[in-house]
Write a protein that binds this DNA or RNA. Structure first.
Lengths: 167, 167
DNA sequence: GCCTGTGGTCAAGGTCATTGACTAGATTGG
DNA sequence: CCAATCTAGTCAATGACCTTGACCACAGGC
């Protein structure tokens, strides 16, 4: 065996990058005057629009269970960012819709994202940015493929990106 | 307001990458026969060595509070991966040391990391890998710098990478 | 009209980490 | 030598986030 520890390891690097992005997101949103936000809110809000969406749809988009969405929505409703309405075409269903305040929050989220994107673009330039995105995608595909030695690569990808979808 | 959503956004991409890496890590460790592992263990174990380290040191390395380390260590001890000993040079201090079983687990963690690294290297080649790491680092520096409009860039970096150091 | 599938909820639990308050031993400076 | 202080680690409580499991109510096909 080698002397190893390959200390320039991608796994921790990506983890720490993820934490950094989340921290920046939270800071940016707070700086725009939205207090008491949490990372989960910041990633759920951009999935919504003023038209409204069903919780189940949101769950699928976010890659979490509908119970989890339910809880988050309840919290967001409590804070006045979303409201729930009945779906006229399906008595069982609800529609989660952004309130005006929610729309403002969503705008703030997008603004922060764009700010990050802009900072990234300024640091790397468009060409390297594009390259980076491509590399990242291929990297993740390669790592996801580890779980699927042969055959069901499709299934493995789905399993990774959706923690506990259906049984 | 543009039509925007810049859907090829780095923030979600990095988040999803991070989740993918964690999933792969867990799967790999499980495949090597270590059941009941959790992501936190998988990221703590590689920070240990057979020589032993103090909880406070570990906390600093992991970027979390010493209380959090304390809990994790307790769990790991319960599962037989680490043991605690008194530090002869300081009565207050403890030394956290891997048991033989813990050493095996650590080896498995490194093996999985190397597997991922190898898969990544195979997919991208060494040149693109190196480039990717560099881009990632610059990207994160740029995003971290957003938090520090002027002056204390150093402090902001530290704040991001260490959630709750000292008060 | 029943039967199955889907939308959503309640309840409980688990993981990871935090803040706050505290004890006990180490250190430093008069 | 001793008081003031710093440092190592703990306990207790809390919070964010998400899961599994068990349900109920409605939709829709046959």
């Amino acid at each position: 065996m080698s002397l190893e520890p390959p200390l320039d390891d991608i796994a921790p690097a990506i983890g720490s990058a993820s934490r950094g992005v989340i921290a920046a997101m939270m800071a940016g949103v707070a700086a725009r005057g939205f207090e008491g936000m949490t990372p989960a809110f910041a990633s759920l809000i951009p999935l919504l629009d003023a038209t409204g969406a069903r919780p189940t749809t949101l769950a699928a988009r976010a890659g979490i269970t509908k119970q989890a969405i339910s809880q988050l929505v309840r919290e967001l409703e409590k804070r006045g960012y979303v409201e729930q309405a009945a779906d006229s075409s399906d008595t069982r269903a609800k529609i989660v819709r952004l309130t005006p305040r929610g729309v403002a929050l969503r705008a703030a989220c997008f603004a922060v994202r764009q700010e990050m994107q802009a900072a990234a673009g300024a640091a790397l330039g468009p060409a390297r940015m594009a390259r980076f995105r491509k590399d990242l995608a291929e990297l993740m595909a390669a790592i996801a493929a580890l779980r699927a030695p042969a055959g069901g690569a499709r299934a493995a990808r789905a399993a990774v990106s959706r923690p506990a979808g259906r049984r």
